[in-house]
């Protein structure tokens, strides 16, 4: 499984004129495993939402190499979902089969077995019939991982996947990540735990609206770069002049 590289060309994403991601250029190589690190309000979630196509960049270009929309697996911060919804765990996991089964086709016995396997892989064996209302936050997060497993996507975007999750579950889910990495999938994860990043993620993008550092984790996360990331002002600068930094590549040609 070799996904195409995800190439960012001078990307700026703005809310109400104020940039959340500012002039970001670079490339997530096929099969790379990158942590996105930065202070609150640094544009980490915005970057993921732009990569998955939920947000359109105000300027610049994102080249997904022709990946179909369903080929990017996206795990948003889980808090948005209604966990009292009357669904069973297997039903939520089965949503990951959408790209394969579509709105109408029945699932084959083989596919049903795959749902069982996915639940087992995240430590939710025998949870298939349990209503999701009975799950803890950590168990629910594992269920979303199972859904992501079934999506079988070559590119995976994870937004703070280990928030509010105990160390054992985190270790379980890290094992899933390692397996994906070994299979050559591209992984991009927003994380706050720098120890975890240093231990598990070969590459790091340190973001503070503008990219501070992007490269091998050891080089990207130094005392100096982290200090510079902390200097980012969270408040909007209402007096900021319009930014006239040269736009590169295709836009300049156009």
């Amino acid at each position: 499984m070799t996904p195409p590289p995800l190439v960012l060309d001078n990307v700026t994403v703005a809310y109400a004129r104020h940039p959340a991601v500012h002039h970001l250029s670079g490339c997530f190589a096929p099969g790379s495993m990158t942590a996105v690190v930065g202070p609150n309000g640094a544009g980490k979630t915005t970057l993921l939402r732009a990569l998955v196509g939920e947000l359109q960049p105000e300027s610049g270009r994102i080249d997904r190499g022709g990946l179909a929309p369903g080929a990017i697996g996206y795990l948003p911060q889980a808090s948005a979902l209604d966990r009292s919804f009357p669904l069973a765990c297997a039903e939520v996991a089965a949503m990951g089969m959408w790209a394969a089964a579509g709105p109408f086709r029945a699932l084959s016995p083989v596919e049903r077995d795959r749902i069982e396997e996915a639940l087992a892989a995240v430590g939710l064996r025998s949870f298939a019939a349990r209503p999701i209302a009975t799950l803890s936050a950590g168990q629910f997060q594992r269920l979303l991982f199972a859904r992501l497993l079934l999506q079988d996507a070559p590119v995976l975007l994870l937004d703070e996947p280990f928030n509010a999750i105990d160390t054992r579950t985190t270790a379980d889910l890290i094992r899933v990540l390692r397996r994906w990495h070994g299979e050559g999938r591209t992984i991009i994860a927003v994380l706050h735990d720098l120890e975890l990043v240093r231990a598990e993620f070969p590459d790091t993008l340190l973001l503070a609206r503008e990219p501070i550092a992007w490269g091998r984790t050891a080089e990207a996360l130094t005392a100096e770069t982290l200090f510079r990331a902390r200097l980012m002002a969270e408040a909007w600068d209402e007096t900021a002049e319009p930014c006239h930094r040269a736009t590169s590549g295709s836009r300049r040609a156009a």
């Binding site: 179909a68 929309p69 369903g70 990017i72 996206y74 948003p76 949503m95 959408w98």
Partner: peptide, 10 residues
């Protein structure tokens, strides 16, 4: 249940 998921899946 999850409109964002369906949107991401087109």
């Amino acid at each position: 249940f999850d409109a964002g998921f369906l949107r991401a899946q087109d």
